[in-house]
C-alpha cells in the first residue's frame, strides 16, 4: 500500500497546478532525487578512495618536500626538492630500482607465459576438471609469509633442498642469499609460485568465453590444436591478456614481503649488500627503519611516477597492437 506521498513521488503529475505548492516541492525533490541518487550511490567508493588513496598520495607528496626530525618523529622544515635529489643520488636507491626490474622481469614474464599454457591445458576435457582447476589456486591461498618460510628453507644457502640436489649432481652449490642474480631468481620463484595459478584461472575464464564454433570452423579448415591455439585462442583472449599484464606489472614493481622475509641478516634490508632490496623495501627502510619520512616519501613518489609511466607505455603498445590486428 502506498502512502499519499510515495504515490506522488512515483507518479509525478505531468503539469502541477501552480497553486499547489506542496506538490511542486515534492516534484522538485523527486527530480533532484533522480539526478543526485546515482552519484550518491557511487560516492562511497570515491569517499573511501579519497581517504585511503588520494589523501595519502597527496600527503606523501607534501612530506617529500620537507625535512624530517628523526629524534622527535616530527615533520621538519620545508626543503624543496632536496629529498628527491638525495634519493636520486643514492646508489642504494638505484640498486633497488635495478633489483626491482630484474625481479619483475624474472617473475612477470614467465608467469604470464606459464599461466596461459596452464589455462590452455585446463581448457581441455580433463577428468576431474574442478579438482585441477581448484588445485592451481591453492598457492594463492597460502599467506605470503608462510610461503617465504617454505621457500626460505628450500633456498637456504647451507642446508637447503635445492642446494642438496645441486650438490648431488656434483655441481657447486649456489649462494642463494648472497649472489645478486640468484637471489632475484629465488624471490621470483616465490612470486611465480603464488601468482601463476591465479592468473591461469583468469585466462581460463577468458578461454571459456571464446565461441566454440570458431574452433569448429577452424578444424573444418584443417587447423590442428596448436594452430588453433595461436590463431583463435590467443587473439580472442587479448583483452584479458592486457588486463593480466597490467596488473602483474603493477604487482611486480611492488614486491615487498618476499625480499623482506627471505633476508637472513638481522637488519632485513634486502641482504647485507642490498643485493635483493626492492624499491618498496627501500621506501620501508628509509621510512620505518631509518626514520626519514621525507626521503621515503620522495622515493615513493618516484616509484609511483615510474609505475604510471610503465602503465602508459603498456597502454600505448596495446593500442598499437589492437589497431594492427584490427586492420
Amino acid at each position: 500500500m502506498l502512502t499519499e506521498e510515495q504515490a506522488g513521488e512515483v507518479k509525478p503529475e505531468p503539469a502541477p497546478p501552480t497553486t499547489d505548492r506542496r506538490l511542486l516541492r515534492r516534484q522538485r525533490r523527486s527530480r533532484w532525487d533522480v539526478k543526485l541518487s546515482p552519484y550518491l550511490y557511487i560516492s562511497p567508493f570515491f569517499i573511501l578512495f579519497g581517504l585511503v588513496g588520494l589523501y595519502p598520495l597527496l600527503y606523501t607528496g607534501w612530506l617529500s618536500l620537507h625535512d624530517w626530525d628523526r629524534l622527535y618523529y616530527q615533520q621538519g622544515e620545508f626543503s624543496g626538492l632536496e629529498n628527491f635529489r638525495f634519493v636520486l643520488n643514492d646508489p642504494v636507491f638505484i640498486k633497488s630500482l635495478v633489483n626491482t626490474f630484474s625481479i619483475f622481469l624474472m617473475s612477470s614474464v614467465p608467469q604470464v607465459i606459464v599461466a596461459v599454457c596452464v589455462a590452455a591445458l585446463l581448457d581441455t576435457h580433463l577428468r576431474g576438471r574442478t579438482f585441477w582447476r581448484m588445485s592451481v589456486l591453492v598457492p594463492f591461498v597460502v599467506a605470503p609469509a608462510a610461503a617465504v618460510l617454505i621457500f626460505g628453507s628450500v633456498f637456504a644457502d647451507k642446508s637447503g633442498l635445492v642446494n642438496a640436489v645441486i650438490d648431488g649432481l656434483g655441481l657447486e652449490p649456489i649462494r642463494w642469499h648472497v649472489d645478486r642474480w640468484w637471489s632475484h631468481f629465488a624471490i621470483a620463484s616465490m612470486v611465480n609460485w603464488r601468482w601463476t595459478g591465479y592468473n591461469a584461472l583468469i585466462f581460463l575464464a577468458a578461454m571459456q568465453a571464446v565461441p566454440r564454433d570458431l574452433y569448429e570452423s577452424a578444424s573444418l579448415d584443417g587447423a590442428g590444436r596448436i594452430r588453433q591455439f595461436w590463431s583463435v585462442t590467443l587473439p580472442m583472449i587479448r583483452p584479458t591478456m592486457i588486463f593480466v599484464i597490467v596488473t602483474s606489472t603493477i604487482g611486480g614493481l611492488q614486491i615487498f614481503t618476499e625480499p623482506r622475509l627471505f633476508d637472513d641478516t638481522p637488519n632485513r634490508e634486502g641482504g647485507a649488500d642490498h643485493q635483493f632490496m626492492t624499491t618498496t623495501l627501500y621506501i620501508y627502510v628509509k621510512g620505518i627503519e631509518d626514520q626519514f619520512y621525507g626521503r621515503a616519501s620522495a622515493a615513493a613518489w618516484i616509484l609511483f611516477l615510474i609505475i604510471v609511466g610503465i602503465a602508459l607505455l603498456n597502454f600505448a603498445i596495446t593500442r598499437l597492437l589492437t589497431r594492427r590486428s584490427g586492420s
Binding site: L71, R175, V178, T265, P266, N267, E269, A272, D273, D290
Partner: peptide, 20 residues
C-alpha cells in the same frame, strides 16, 4: 643517539666482508 642505527649498518658491513 645514532648508536643503534650505525651499529646495524656496521653489522651489514661485516656481513658483506663475510660474503666475499
Amino acid at each position: 643517539p645514532l648508536y643503534s642505527d650505525i651499529l646495524g649498518k656496521f653489522q651489514d658491513a661485516i656481513n658483506r666482508v663475510d660474503q666475499g
